[in-house]
Every structure is written in structure tokens, then in C-alpha cells.
């Protein structure tokens, strides 16, 4: 399958790969998986006292579209409040990366990773 140039760019130069200490109270961790393909994704957000996402890191084991979706999301969430980040929809990701229909689940994975991270943060505080 042919990936779009945007996907290829994220795959070749993934942004913000890595991890924060998940026990740090300012760090929110979202773990999600797609049973359809067995991909797993971890998204971590570093959140300021004012509730702003200061930094984000991800680690994804999956196809190019899943890597690109999570890489893109780490760029998008920076500087946003949790409520603003929660508004990111998988359709925004699909449109930006020009994902074909069979790869929509990768964008859903990234959207759900944000939601899971926010949920984790709310449970911590």
C-alpha cells in the first residue's frame, strides 16, 4: 500500500518518541491497542499546574499509519488544555495524514490514546 508523503515523513522522522516517568504526578499515560491489527500505542502528556500540555511523548508498535497518527498527535496536543486536546477527532488525523479507509482504525487508536491519557490524569488528581 502506498503511504502519503505526510505519513512517510512521520515514519522517517517520528516526533517526540520516548517516555516520561509514569509515576510522575504531572505525567498522564494513555495505553491503547487495536485488536484488529495487534498494534499497541502509549501516549504520555506532561501537564503544567495550569492544566496545559507542555510536552508529549509516544511509543507505538504498529504499522506506518499508527506511528504517523501518534507522532502527529504529540505535535498537536502541545500547548493545548486537556479539554482542547480531548476535542481532537480521529477524522482530523485521517484528513491530515490522508489515511485510506482501511487505516482509519490507526487514527481511532491515536484519538483514544489522548482520551485514555486524560482519563489517567483525572484519576491521578
Amino acid at each position: 500500500m502506498a503511504y502519503s508523503d505526510k505519513v512517510l515523513d512521520h515514519v522517517e522522522n517520528p516526533r517526540n518518541v520516548g517516555a516520561f516517568d509514569k509515576n510522575d504526578p504531572t505525567v498522564a499515560t494513555g495505553m491503547v491497542g487495536a485488536p484488529a491489527c495487534g498494534d499497541v500505542m502509549k501516549l504520555q502528556l506532561k501537564i503544567s499546574d495550569e492544566g496545559i500540555i507542555e510536552d508529549a511523548k509516544f511509543k507505538t508498535y504498529g504499522c506506518g499509519s499508527a506511528i504517523a497518527s501518534s507522532s502527529l498527535v504529540t505535535e498537536w496536543v502541545k500547548g493545548k488544555t486537556l479539554d482542547q486536546a480531548a476535542e481532537i477527532k480521529n477524522t482530523d488525523i485521517t484528513a491530515e495524514l490522508e489515511l485510506p479507509p482501511v487505516k482509519i482504525h490507526c487514527s481511532i487508536l491515536a484519538e483514544d490514546a489522548i482520551k485514555a491519557a486524560i482519563e489517567d490524569y483525572k484519576n491521578k488528581h
Binding site: 491497542g33 485488536p35 499497541v40 511509543k59
Partner: peptide, 16 residues
Amino acid sequence: AEQQTLQDPMFLMQQM
């Protein structure tokens, strides 16, 4: 054909 994600942190942590 489901598109929904699995959200079981313990299981996913092990997978990771």
C-alpha cells in the same frame, strides 16, 4: 470488523 480499541492498561503494559 470492529474498529474499537482495547483499553486494558495491565494487559497493554505487558504487551508494550
